[in-house]
């Protein structure tokens, strides 16, 4: 080995060590605050429920059993736990729709911001982050005020004579969709903006120059380049909306239970911590599987076209 390449390996080794050192604090926090509790949850899901909440230190697979199956009270036959499964399904549907809606509304928004000049961009970005300044619960209740029967929106529409009867909006699927989109929109816009900002918009002109229509430019040039942002934004929105719990409760009136509400119920009134823990782990598994598929598919399509 030549002296030069030896020096290079030594340099690389030192570089790696320095990076490890620099990332140690973050790794420690992740270990203590994320992996640790997760292990506790996993452990709890294999214990028996205590009578007033909490757990009894005794191995039991009942919780996991109850996630998927249910024993008839009268004849002891086994059936799938349709109640749970439909909640899983409803939550996934909601998360999917939320992701789609935030993408549909977030894309033009991000494009708009990215094509402003530098100073205006900062103002728009600032405006996008304003909702983060207020507590989620308060914002959701405020939204309730807007869309309820005698709320702002209905009053306005009535005054304008556009409707003769107030439209029932609160405690409907529409309310949940609206609330979720509103809450998660910034999480979509920001990563989309981050990818769009890096685009040299002169290549958009090059696209037009080479006979691509507006749609052609969008499909063949902008979307492929913004793909990393679309993936990141979808992940950022999909995961939390799968476990969303405040919005469906406040705006949906708790009429249709979501996974988050179900889990909360087990830790609260249900007093079945192991079941709650098992449901949480199951939720996490869904997220991981969904992510795996999504990222795999998205990156196979690649940033290049067909």
């Amino acid at each position: 080995m030549s002296a030069a390449s030896e020096a290079e390996t030594r340099f690389e080794r030192e570089d790696t060590r320095r990076r490890w050192l620099l990332s140690t604090p973050a790794l420690l926090i992740i270990l203590v605050a994320a992996v640790g509790p997760l292990l506790v949850v996993l452990l709890y899901s294999f214990l028996a429920p205590g009578s007033y909440g909490d757990v009894r230190w005794q191995f039991s697979s009942d919780a996991w059993f109850n996630v998927f199956l249910e024993r008839d009270i009268f004849d002891d036959t086994l059936a799938p736990a349709w109640a749970h499964l439909s909640i899983f399904w409803r939550s996934m549907k909601l998360a999917f729709i939320t992701t789609l809606l935030t993408l549909v509304f977030g894309f033009p928004t991000a494009y708009f911001i990215a094509t402003r000049d530098e100073r205006t961009r900062e103002i728009w970005l600032f405006l996008i982050t304003i909702p983060f300044w207020t507590n989620l619960l308060i914002r959701t209740f405020a939204l309730q005020e807007v869309i309820r029967q005698e709320g702002l929106l209905n009053t306005l529409l009535l005054k304008l004579g556009l409707i003769s009867q107030p439209i029932p909006m609160l405690f409907t699927d529409f309310a949940i969709g609206l609330g979720m989109t509103y809450v998660y929109l910034p999480l979509m816009v920001l990563p989309l903006y981050a990818s769009m900002e890096r685009i040299d918009f002169r290549i958009v002109e090059a696209g037009y120059d080479l006979y691509a229509s507006r749609f052609g430019v969008l499909r063949r040039i902008i979307v492929p380049l913004v793909k990393p942002g679309i993936i990141a934004g979808s992940i950022l929105v999909f995961i939390p909306s799968l476990g969303a719990y405040v919005t469906p409760r406040v705006l949906g009136g708790g009429k249709s239970m979501m996974l988050g509400n179900l889990i909360e119920l087990q830790f609260g009134q249900g007093r079945n911590w192991p079941l709650g823990a098992a449901l949480s782990i199951a939720l996490m598994a869904i997220v991981m599987i969904a992510l795996l598929f999504y990222v795999r598919n998205a990156s196979r399509g690649g940033p290049t076209h067909g």
Binding site: D209, Y211, A212, S213, G216, I221
Partner: peptide
């Protein structure tokens, strides 16, 4: 995109997500 005029841009403005060949074929494809 309706003008029979093409431009060689001062800044090149090549499509970064495409190969050399795909760049050259883009106009014809469109």
């Amino acid at each position: 995109f309706k003008r029979p005029v093409n431009t060689v841009f001062q800044s090149y403005a090549l499509f970064p997500h495409m190969t050399v060949g795909q760049n050259i074929g883009f106009g014809l494809e469109m």
